[in-house]
Amino acid sequence: MTNCPDEERCLHLLEVILDDESTPEAEQEYFEHIDQCWPCYQNYNLEKAIRKLIKSKIENKPVPDGLIKSIKREIEKITIE
């Protein structure tokens, strides 16, 4: 399969678009491009899927019990001082 002749630029655009930091014009240009460019279309789907997976796989730790309570206690101490 031939690569997109403008691959680096497209990958850069893709990153900015997925970060929701692009302009509507750039977005339109990009989506019109991927309609006709199979490698870029694949990159788009892959990158989107990878981001989604990374986000879902990284586990959150539960906040320890009583943390807010202990912060409130410390704040009370400052207020009394």
Partner: peptide, 21 residues
């Protein structure tokens, strides 16, 4: 250089959360 093309979604799907972490 962007290396997304080297990483496959399938392989990520199989990974455990703590491996990604």
């Amino acid at each position: 250089k962007t290396i997304t093309t080297d990483l496959r979604v399938d392989s990520l799907k199989d990974m455990m959360g703590d491996e990604v972490t």
